[in-house]
């Protein structure tokens, strides 16, 4: 555990809590892609199956459980409790275009051809692209509420901090996780355009982020 890794985990947690509280307090999930949230719930489910097989640390177990519970609670709020506010019309990204190639890649490139390892690899690849329905929705509607952009900022910052963590670990321990690093770079690249808009429009302006 180093400072980048810890800051990355905290950033990830902050992002998920921001989104949950936004929906809970406003009683609305307007502007939020339910599809992206289902994909993230799927990411955590397929990655954290090792909760049943190995114990790593209390920190590790608690964080995994918190991520799982919050991701399913968010999906519940969107599709059940506040489904009246769900904008299914604009949440029209075809997730099979992500799931099919990601599943295929997980079978081709993994650390071991075992169910848990393939599911872990699937979760790493899926996480890299899971935000695409949300970014697609923002592009389609042309705007995002500032609280939604704060959520996206912390979610992007999380993987960027993990990249710093991997650079640090490579130099200090000689550690290199090829699957996670390559996917992490791809994942972070997806947020670069958003980071630019966030700094130039949300932080310097006020209120909503609207696209040109």
């Amino acid at each position: 555990m180093n400072i980048f890794r810890l800051a990355g985990d905290v950033s990830h947690l902050v992002a998920i809590i921001i989104l949950f509280l936004k929906i809970w307090k406003s009683k609305s999930c307007a502007g939020i892609s339910g599809k992206s949230q289902v994909l993230f719930a799927l990411v955590f489910t397929s990655r954290y199956l090792d909760l049943f097989t190995v114990f790593i640390s209390a920190y590790n177990t608690i964080m995994k459980l918190v991520f799982l519970v919050l991701s399913y609670a968010t999906v519940y709020l969107i599709y059940m409790r506040f489904r009246g506010s769900y904008d299914s019309e604009n949440d029209s990204f075809r997730v099979e275009f992500l799931l099919v190639p990601v599943t295929g890649l997980a079978f081709l490139e993994n650390y071991a051809f075992t169910p848990l390892e393939i599911l872990w690899t699937f979760s790493i690849f899926l996480e890299a692209v899971a935000i695409m329905p949300q970014l697609f929705m923002i592009t389609k509607t042309g705007e995002a509420e500032s609280i939604t952009t704060h959520y996206l900022f912390f979610l992007g910052l999380y993987r960027a901090l993990y990249l710093a963590n991997w650079v640090w670990r490579y130099h200090t321990e000689g550690f290199f996780d090829q699957i996670a690093v390559v996917s992490g770079v791809v994942q972070t690249i997806f947020y670069c355009d958003f980071f630019y808009l966030y700094v130039t429009r949300v932080l310097r302006g006020s209120g909503k982020m609207s696209l040109p």
Binding site: M1, R5, D9, H12, D50, V54, I56, S57, N60, M63, K64, F67, Y111, W120, Y162, Y170, G174, F175, F176, D177, Q178, I179, A180
Partner: peptide, 10 residues
């Protein structure tokens, strides 16, 4: 450096 996976990372 061999490619390896760290089970601790989230």
């Amino acid at each position: 450096v061999d490619s390896q996976k760290d089970k601790d990372e989230l």
